[in-house]
């Protein structure tokens, strides 16, 4: 069973038909994002994992087949995204520690592979993780259930399981899974030397914009991971940043138009309250922002104009999505 923990949602179940991949990935890159973007496709799942805005791993898990990693996984995800426009896109933010532990889950060294729980000394495994200060991911699973434990420097930092995928601090449910008949365990470990700073940013290896545009132009041609643009032409990676800045500028202009000069700082203040500009693409966060803006705007203009401003902002964000 393939499960992924859920962190703070930035987007959930957005139709992939509305996703412009280079733009979305550009946003993550520009915002020091820690977490992952998941593409739920018709018969597979693609996951793009970020640590501090760097794309450090891509994982592609087809149903019933072996998973693929990094450039292969990116290529497979893009091909499937172009062919299957009825998938869904979600993105979740995590702490850097959890994001690093997720890396262990995707491509850590497998030190225990599908071991039956009853045949191993589980306590000794935990002691080893603690003693060697491992950065690891434990997956305990049966045919119907699965749970994950994330370790950072030998200490557990989060638990999640299939029935409540949010990362929590309680291991009760995972203990229940561990004692189920046929329960097995995988343990994946990331080497100490592989901290976030030393990992390769896949964005630097592949020009995603180019791969994406080639894939869209001819959906029946197998795309290859195009090398990243040379420094002289790296401008091609800029549209995402420009677009994000463009949206921010557009919203700022809308706020100015309806509220005057205080509109801009008011918008910035409310954006800070929802955790920054990136959150605006999440519908719930956008509504939270607009509600906050409404409170301050009541001292600057009338309700009709506030509604017009909110609608104009929704339109701007929708256009951007």
């Amino acid at each position: 069973m393939f499960i992924l923990p859920k962190g703070t949602p930035l987007a959930e179940n957005v139709p992939t038909s509305r996703i412009d991949l280079p733009v979305v990935l550009g946003k993550f890159r520009n915002s020091n994002f820690n977490g992952y973007a998941k593409f739920g496709l018709s018969a597979a799942t693609g996951v793009f994992l970020y640590i501090e805005g760097r794309l450090i791993s891509v994982f592609f898990q087809p149903e019933g087949n072996n998973s693929r990693q990094d450039l292969d996984a990116m290529q497979a995800t893009i091909e499937n995204l172009v062919l299957n426009r009825d998938g869904d896109f979600s993105a979740y933010r995590f702490s850097k520690e959890i994001a690093f532990a997720l890396l262990a889950m995707f491509r850590g060294e497998l030190i225990l592979n599908a071991q039956e729980m009853k045949l191993i000394d589980f306590k000794a495994v935990l002691e080893k993780i603690k003693a060697e200060r491992m950065n690891a991911c434990l997956k305990i699973y049966t045919e119907n259930r699965a749970g994950l434990i994330f370790y950072r420097d030998g200490a557990p930092i989060g638990f999640c399981h299939d029935s409540a995928q949010e990362i929590g601090l309680s291991q009760t449910e995972i203990q229940k899974i561990a004692v189920l008949p046929g329960a097995r365990i995988d343990v994946r470990v990331i080497k100490d030397s592989e901290d976030g700073a030393t990992l390769v940013d896949l964005n630097d290896l592949v020009d995603i914009s180019k791969v994406w545009s080639v894939a869209k132009e001819n959906v029946f041609t197998t795309v290859s991971a195009a090398p990243a643009a040379s420094p002289a032409t790296t401008i091609s990676a800029e549209p995402a940043k420009t677009d994000l800045a463009g949206l921010q500028s557009d919203l700022s202009n809308v706020a100015f138009k309806y509220l005057g000069k205080l509109g801009r700082p008011l918008l910035e203040k409310e954006l800070a309250k929802i955790g920054g500009f990136e959150g605006i693409l999440v519908p719930e966060k956008l509504e939270e922002l607009l509600a906050g803006l409404e409170n301050g705007s009541k001292l600057l203009t009338n309700l009709a104009k506030i509604r017009q401003m909110q609608d104009a902002m929704r339109d701007e964000v929708a256009r951007y999505r």
């Binding site: 309806y258 509220l259 005057g260 000069k261 205080l262 509109g263 001292l299 600057l300 203009t301 009338n302 104009k305």
Partner: peptide, 9 residues
């Protein structure tokens, strides 16, 4: 002066 260009000024 702070609200000069706003609707309510």
């Amino acid at each position: 002066n702070e609200l000069r260009d706003s609707f309510v000024a």
